[in-house]
Design a protein around this nucleic acid. Structure first.
Lengths: 195, 195
DNA sequence: AAGTACATTTGATTTAGGTCAACTCACTGT
DNA sequence: ACAGTGAGTTGACCTAAATCAAATGTACTT
């Protein structure tokens, strides 16, 4: 019923390996479709992140709330991305993050224990995990560098040129928080860049 | 001659698996000891990071230089850590980073191609790689959150409580740059916290 | 021991970006 | 059609941290 093809295609593309029919059946048996309405939480601060979700449709944000009540978005997620607080998911510790659906969200979700099985039994899945972890290391390092070295304006320009689709899918407030800016500051940056 | 025991112990401890004698011989055959003097570069911006190094002794910093000529430290590394720009190392692209020895530095180094062999042939090595990649994902996420949500003072306090040994080994200027602060600001923060 | 090169501290001033507040547009649901 | 809510804009003001500059401390070198 639910769209497992998206998941299969993704695994095969990222890993560069094919999934056997057995592999596919195993995945279908242990990834459960789940729908969340806009504003619904996939994960709440303080809970253990028991599930990892593959986004089939929709978008989400991962954020913290600081002592002043300000929200800070650490991750914006779209179709064909994994949704989880990996720290909590791997270590089974309570999460410091919230993950909230920004649009109606469809995921295929599974548990830590089950993922371990996939890693053991499905070569393409384990190859995919390695590639993702590499990509993730690289991306986070870039983002860290940007946060440290660049001005707000440069960070926004980088986003515009590297992730233009973000601007279509996420509100300006979300983008501002993702860039570590107040909404007002982003509004002003955009105003100036139109000259 | 050089201290391979440190490397063996590290792999076994992190992976939770034992290395066979064959494994050890393989590692000894393909990790080459290298010494760098203080201030010497392990990697220069624009070069491809051909080697990954395991630090046996000494310390290093990974940093970028922005258009104004300001340096930003992304990573401080000590004994039993891996030294590389993983983006450049994995993808064989020119690096945006510099890696410089802060003290006399002894590493055991190997190449990308060789690491691939280790991953295939040495189970403990591949288990270690997975654990490191997990830890790395978690640590970078924490650091990103800290950079976004916390004040300079809170970031320093976190460093003091989580990595007290950093303060012993790295100069205040290095710590400041690592925290994304000017040396003057860090000096003032320290002054205030002594009350 | 003297001299040069760094590190750190302190003070005065500047600035990027945040905060607070008011206003304008959409959209949504009734 | 109309209130209501959230998103974006604009202006006035504020603040954390950077910058500039000078003084002091420390630690290699020869």
């Amino acid at each position: 019923m639910s769209n497992f093809e998206a998941l299969f295609d993704y695994i095969q593309e990222i890993s560069g390996k094919l999934l056997s029919e057995d592999d596919k059946h195993l995945l279908m048996a242990h990834f459960k479709p789940r729908k969340l309405r806009k504003r619904q939480y996939f994960l709440q601060e303080g809970d253990v992140c028991k599930y990892i979700g593959f986004i089939v449709k929709g978008s989400a944000r991962t954020f913290t709330v600081d002592e002043k009540g300000h929200e800070h978005i650490l991750k914006l997620s779209l179709e064909n991305w994994w949704l989880a607080d990996f720290e909590s998911f791997y270590l089974l510790t309570p999460s410091r993050f919230n993950i909230e659906a920004l649009e109606e969200l469809e995921v295929l979700q599974s548990t830590n224990a089950q993922i371990e099985e996939f890693l053991k039994d499905i070569p393409a899945f384990s190859a995919m995990a390695n590639v993702i972890s590499q990509n993730n290391t690289i991306a986070t390092q870039k983002r860290m560098q940007a946060a440290m070295s660049y001005t707000a304006e440069k960070r926004y320009e980088d986003l515009v040129s590297n992730y233009p689709h973000f601007l279509k899918r996420f509100s300006q407030n979300m983008i501002a928080s993702y860039l570590g800016l107040s909404p007002e500051t982003l509004s002003r940056i955009r105003k100036n860049s139109f000259k």
